[in-house]
């Protein structure tokens, strides 16, 4: 936005509206463009920033209501935020509090169905992984997410004692991201071969960077990449 008026403003104001704009010329031309200098830059940015200017951060709204209030009272500082985006509510918590929160939600609020456990990776951040637990309550017909950031090498507690579903889901997170869960009954790879090196869904794992040695040893082929 800041760049736009300068290249337009430096040439003569007459030539400015001529080359590009589609919507404004109808207004700008009859107004006798050379006379009013501020009119040209004012008319220009008006149609442009309205559509293609996505905000640089997620446009969240605070999540308010009975449930976040109760969680705030129960866990206090351990929960760092209650947010809503496109009508979907989620909370961010410290990693140690994630499983207690899930347990509390299950027993006190009827969130008895753990839909999914997954993670995202952002190597630029000091706590590079974000664990995402998706919970659903049959009685309330409500779905929420619990998110917690994890450092490389951290061992977050396992949710298996609370929801048996977490067994395979956490194994997949371990397989794909290399996050080990403390107290998981069977922490090993699930989709990739056991001897595979590397964790494919990490951002620094190239899509072409497969474990060449494993492929050659076990399949006897060149991978072709």
């Amino acid at each position: 936005m800041a760049d736009d008026p300068k290249p337009e403003g430096t040439p003569t104001p007459e030539s400015a509206p001529a080359p590009k704009p589609e919507a404004p010329p109808a207004e700008a031309k009859p107004e006798a463009a050379p006379a009013e200098k501020p009119a040209a830059p004012a008319a220009k940015p008006a149609p442009k920033p309205a559509a293609p200017k996505p905000p640089p951060v997620m446009e969240t709204e605070p999540w308010e209501g009975e449930l976040p209030d109760a969680l705030k009272a129960e866990f206090g500082e351990q929960i760092t935020g209650f947010l809503t985006y496109v009508g979907q509510s989620f909370l961010t918590a410290q990693v140690g509090a994630a499983v207690p929160i899930i347990q509390y939600l299950k027993h006190e609020w009827g969130f008895d169905y753990l839909v999914d456990v997954t993670a995202t990776d952002d190597p630029a951040k000091p706590e590079r992984f974000e664990l995402v637990y998706i919970l659903y309550s049959f009685s309330r017909n409500e779905r929420i997410r619990v998110k917690a950031r994890v450092k490389e090498g951290d061992k977050p507690p396992s949710a298996v004692p609370v929801h048996t579903t977490a067994d395979w889901l956490e194994r997949e997170v371990f397989d794909m991201f290399g996050i080990e869960f403390e107290g998981h009954p069977n922490m090993k790879r699930i989709l990739m071969p056991d001897e595979w090196q590397g964790h494919p869904l990490r951002k620094d794992y190239s899509i072409l960077g497969m474990d060449q040695k494993w492929v050659q040893d076990n399949l006897g082929i060149e991978s072709g990449q």
């Binding site: 996505p54 446009e59 979907q88």
Partner: peptide, 20 residues
């Protein structure tokens, strides 16, 4: 899409199919 995240799920023939 603007920066953000969404989980949307449908009733597939086999059960809940979700995309996050």
């Amino acid at each position: 899409p603007p920066i953000g995240e969404a989980y949307v799920s449908i009733e597939a023939p086999k059960g809940e199919l979700g995309y996050y």
